[in-house]
Nucleic acid binder design. Structure first.
Length: 768
DNA sequence: GAGGTGCCTTTTTTT
DNA sequence: AAGGCACCTC
C-alpha cells in the first residue's frame, strides 16, 4: 500500500513510517508532535500535496504558519511537489495576515472601515502614552510598554475591556500592582483605535473572533471555504487563535496541528502550551503522531539538546533520536569581554572556513537579545567576512519610512488621527502644537474626528489657510485612489508633499541613507503593483491593499537574498525553524540568558531553557557556546556569572582544549571574576588570521612615541581606557588586578599582543 | 512656532 | 550608546 503510493507520487518518497502516516491521514483531527529536525516541514508540504492529489480543491485548504516567509516557502514546496500550479490557490499565511485579509472584506460588519489601518507596536504604544496622559496619569508608573503587554495579553485571551473591568481576578492583579486604572486605559485605548478606524495586531485576532461569533453568515462562509485546516508551530498559538480555529474547523473537523512543546518560546505573546492538551480534550478521537527521528544534527548535538531539555519539569515525554554519526564535541569558550566574544567568533569562523571548507552562509550567530549583535558585526566587518543581520530594527520602523507611510495611511483612511498628527506639520507648514490641540478638543466636543474638524467647512473657527491647504492636498490624493494603483498614488504623495525633495536636499550621510530608504520603499510599492496576478484571483493593486500587507511583514520576510553567502546574525527567536551547519550560541550568562526577568518564575525559566534548546538544535554539525566575563550594558560595564545552562551540558560532550578552560576549573564555574584568565587562554591558540598577519607583516620592533609623550599617573586607570606605551605603542586596558600598591594591568597592544604591565614601574600615557 | 540642548530611560523575545 | 522628550531660547 505504502509502496504503491511511493511509486506513484514523488512527494511520498523517503518518508519514514510516522511521517508517512501523518501525510496519508486525511480526514478528522490530527496532532503531530514533531521534535526538532524531524522533518516537520516536509511532512506538512507532502500532506498538502497529498490532499490536493487526492481531489481536495486547493481553495478549500487553509494553512497557517508562523511567518510569511514560512508560508511562501511552503507554497513553493507544495508547488514543487505537485509539479503544477494548483498550489497557488492555497490559502496560506500567518494568523495575522490571513485574518487581516478576511477582515478587509468584512470589517464593516464590525463598524470599522474596510480599509482600516493596522497599527504596529510603536503606533500602539504611542497612543497608549497619549491615553495615559489624557487620563491625567503618570506615564512613569503606567508605563506604555507595560500597559501594551497587559492589554495584549487580555485581547489574546479574548477579554475585551468591558470584561476586563468586571473580572475580579484581573482587578485584583491591577490593584496589587498599584495600577487600578488599567481597565480605564484599556477602554480609552480601544475606543480610540476604533474611532481612528484602526486595529492593532491583537485586534486582528480579537475582531476575527467577534466576527465569527456574532455573524453566523460569516462563520458559515468561512467554514464552507476552509474544509481542511493546518496549523504549523502549534505550540506558539494563543487562546484567541485556538478559539478561532476551533470555530472554523467545527463543521468538518479536518484540522491538523503540528508542534513541539519543547520549542514553545512565545508565551510572552500569549502562546500557551495548554493548547496542546486542550486539543486532545476537545477532539477525543484525534490521531496523535509523534515524529521522533532527528535528521538534522549529529548525535553529540542531539544528546546535548536532550539533556538540556531534560531539566524542564513540564514536557510531553518523547525520545528524539538520530542515526547520524557522533560528530565533533561542543566547543565552549569564555572571553573577557563582549568585544572579545565578537573577535573569538569571527576568528573561529575564519578558521573553520579554511580548515573545513565551510562557506559564509554555513554559519549562524544566535543571541538572546538584538542589542548583542554589535560586537559580532564589528569583528566580522573588520575581518571582511560578509554577514547579514536578520531582524532587528525593521525597515518599516525607520522614521522616514513611517512618515511616508503615515501619509499613505491618511490618504486611505482619514479617520486615523494618529497618523494625521504625524504628518500634518511635516514637512513644516505652520501647523503647530497649539493648533493641533485645539482641533483635538474641538473634535471631542463635537464627538467627531480630527479630520472632520479640519475638512468640514461647516465647523468654523479652526480652519486656516494652512489646514485648508493640507486638506486639499490629501483630498487630491484620495481622488487618485480609484483609478490609480498604489505606486502612482505613492509617487504623487512623495512629489507633492515635498517629502522626497526634503530628503534629497539633505546631503549628510544620514540624509542620503534616508533618501535611499524612501527610494527603496517606492521600489517595493512598484514591485507590489507589478507582481502578476495569480491564477484565478485578481490581485488588488490598490494602495489600501498594499498598506494592509506592509505592517504585517517583518524583515525576515523581506529577505530576498536569503541565500546570500553571508554569516547570519539573529536572535534565537528569529532562528526558529532554521538550521545551519555551524552555530554559535553566544552570551550564555546569567541575567542575559536566562534573562534577568525570567529568573524568579519557574515557567519563565523553563521557557528560557526551551529557547536554549532551540538554539542548540539549529546546529547540524558544529556548535559553539560562548560567554563573556563582562560586557557593556546601558553604556556601562557589567560582570556576569556564566549561565546556569552551561552546567546543564554534560561535560563529556564538551571540548575544552580549544579554549584551555577545562582543566583549570569547573565548567561554567569561573568565580575568579577577572578577565585575564579568559583572555590569556583565548590567545594561546592564535587564529589563523592572526598567525597570517604575523607572518606577513613582521611587527615593528619599537613604537615611535608621540612627540609629547609623558607618563601619566595611573592610580585612576580603568578597564577600557586607551593608553600609550613607549615601546608597545597604543593599547587598551583589558583587566586590572592586584592590590592598590601593586596593580597589574593586562593591556592589549594590538600587533604587540596582550602584555601584563606592573603599573608601579611602567610609563604609560593615558590617551582617554 | 521652530530649533537646539541636555537629561533620562532603555533591553527580552515578535505578529 | 542612543534615541526620545522636556525645557529652553530665539
Amino acid at each position: 500500500m505504502v509502496r504503491k503510493f511511493a511509486a506513484m507520487h514523488k512527494y511520498l518518497e523517503g518518508l519514514n513510517e510516522q511521517q508517512m502516516a501523518a501525510v496519508l491521514h486525511m480526514d478528522g483531527p490530527l496532532m503531530i508532535v514533531a521534535g526538532a529536525g524531524s522533518g516537520k516541514t516536509k511532512v506538512l508540504t507532502s500532506r498538502i500535496a497529498h490532499l490536493i492529489n487526492s481531489g481536495v480543491d486547493a481553495f478549500n485548504i487553509l494553512a497557517l504558519t508562523f511567518t510569511n516567509k514560512a508560508a511562501a516557502e511552503m507554497k513553493e514546496r507544495v508547488e514543487h511537489a505537485l509539479g503544477n500550479t494548483e498550489a497557488r490557490n492555497l490559502y496560506i499565511g500567518t494568523f495575522h495576515s490571513v485574518f487581516a485579509r478576511i477582515l478587509r472584506a468584512d470589517a464593516n460588519k464590525l463598524g470599522y472601515p474596510n480599509n482600516f489601518t493596522i497599527y504596529d507596536t510603536d503606533d500602539a504604544k504611542s497612543i497608549i502614552k497619549e491615553t495615559v496622559k489624557s487620563l491625567n496619569l503618570d506615564d512613569k508608573h503606567y508605563k506604555p510598554a507595560y500597559i501594551y503587554n497587559r492589554i495584549s495579553a487580555a485581547k489574546n485571551a479574548l477579554v475585551g475591556y468591558a470584561a476586563y473591568k468586571q473580572d475580579m481576578q484581573i482587578q485584583q492583579e491591577d490593584s496589587r500592582s498599584n495600577r487600578p486604572l488599567m481597565g480605564d486605559i484599556y477602554e480609552a485605548y480601544a475606543k480610540k483605535c476604533f474611532k481612528n478606524g484602526a486595529m492593532d495586531f491583537d485586534d486582528l485576532l480579537f475582531n476575527m473572533y467577534v466576527l465569527l461569533t456574532h455573524f453566523p453568515d460569516a462563520l458559515a462562509k468561512y467554514q464552507g471555504r476552509f474544509r481542511y485546516i493546518l496549523i504549523d508551530e502549534y505550540q506558539d498559538t494563543n487562546v484567541a487563535q485556538y478559539a478561532i480555529m476551533k470555530m472554523l474547523a467545527a463543521r468538518n473537523e479536518n484540522i491538523c496541528v503540528v508542534g513541539d512543546d519543547a520549542q514553545s518560546i512565545y508565551s510572552f505573546r500569549g502562546a500557551t502550551v495548554q493548547n496542546i492538551l486542550q486539543f486532545q480534550n476537545d477532539y477525543e478521537d484525534a490521531a496523535v503522531i509523534k515524529l521522533e527521528q532527528n535528521y538534522r544534527s549529529t548525535r553529540t548535538i542531539l544528546e546535548v539538546a536532550n539533556s538540556i531539555i531534560g531539566n524542564n519539569k513540564n514536557q510531553i515525554p518523547k525520545n528524539l533520536w538520530t542515526d547520524k554519526t557522533e560528530g565533533d564535541k561542543i566547543l565552549l569558550a569564555r572571553t573577557a569581554t563582549d568585544n572579545d566574544e565578537g573577535r573569538f567568533v569571527a576568528d573561529a569562523i575564519k578558521e573553520q572556513m579554511m580548515r573545513n571548507h565551510y562557506a559564509n552562509k554555513d554559519f549562524a550567530v544566535l543571541y538572546r537579545t538584538n542589542a548583542q549583535s554589535r560586537s559580532f558585526e564589528e569583528s566580522l566587518r573588520r575581518m571582511n567576512i560578509p554577514y547579514k543581520l536578520v531582524g532587528g530594527t525593521s525597515f518599516y520602523q525607520r522614521k522616514e519610512i513611517k512618515d511616508y507611510l503615515a501619509y499613505l495611511r491618511v490618504v486611505v483612511n482619514s479617520q486615523d488621527e494618529e497618523n494625521i498628527k504625524r504628518i500634518i506639520n511635516y514637512p513644516t507648514r505652520g501647523i503647530g502644537k497649539t493648533t493641533i490641540e485645539r482641533i483635538i478638543v474641538r473634535a471631542d466636543e463635537l464627538n467627531t474626528t480630527f479630520w472632520e474638524v479640519i475638512a468640514n467647512p461647516e465647523i468654523d473657527g479652526l480652519r486656516s489657510s494652512q489646514t485648508n491647504a493640507f486638506v486639499t492636498m490629501i483630498q487630491s490624493f484620495r481622488t487618485m485612489l480609484e483609478k490609480q494603483n498604489a505606486y502612482e498614488v505613492a509617487f504623487a504623495v512623495g512629489k507633492h508633499t515635498g517629502l522626497v525633495k526634503e530628503l534629497y536636499d539633505d546631503k549628510s550621510v544620514e540624509g542620503v541613507a534616508r533618501y535611499e530608504n524612501v527610494q527603496e520603499l517606492l521600489n517595493s510599492i512598484k514591485e507590489f503593483t507589478e507582481t502578476p496576478d495569480e491564477e484565478g484571483e485578481l490581485q488588488d493593486k490598490s494602495l489600501g491593499s498594499y498598506l494592509q500587507q506592509i505592517t504585517l511583514l517583518t524583515d525576515a520576510d523581506q529577505d530576498k537574498e536569503e541565500d546570500a553567502n553571508a554569516v547570519k546574525l539573529m536572535t534565537i527567536h528569529a532562528a526558529k525553524g532554521l538550521e545551519f551547519p555551524c552555530v554559535f550560541a553566544v552570551g550564555l550568562e546569567e541575567n542575559l540568558f536566562p534573562s534577568a526577568m525570567s529568573m524568579y518564575d519557574r515557567n519563565d525559566l523553563e521557557e528560557e531553557r526551551r529557547l536554549f534548546y532551540v538554539a542548540v538544535t539549529r546546529a547540524k554539525e558544529r556548535l559553539w557556546i560562548t560567554y563573556a566575563n563582562s560586557r557593556y550594558r546601558f553604556g556601562s560595564l557589567v560582570q556576569n556569572e556564566p549561565s546556569r545552562f552551561i552546567k546543564e551540558v554534560p561535560a563529556s560532550y564538551i571540548d575544552t582544549t580549544y579554549t584551555g578552560i577545562g582543566n583549570k576549573g569547573p565548567i561554567g564555574g569561573n568565580t575568579r571574576g577577572g578577565g585575564l584568565f579568559g583572555e590569556q587562554s583565548f590567545d594561546k591558540v592564535p587564529s589563523l588570521k592572526k598567525l597570517a598577519d604575523k607572518l606577513a607583516a613582521p611587527k615593528p620592533s619599537t613604537h615611535t612615541p608621540t612627540a609629547d609623550f609623558a607618563a601619566d599617573d595611573t592610580t585612576d586607570l580603568q578597564v577600557g581606557m586607551q593608553v600609550e606605551h613607549q615601546k608597545f605603542g597604543f593599547g587598551k586596558v583589558l583587566t586590572l588586578e592586584g592590590g592598590t600598591q601593586n596593580r597589574i594591568a593586562a593591556i592589549d597592544f594590538g600587533t604587540h599582543g596582550v602584555k601584563k604591565i606592573m603599573l608601579n614601574f611602567a610609563k604609560l600615557r593615558i590617551v582617554k
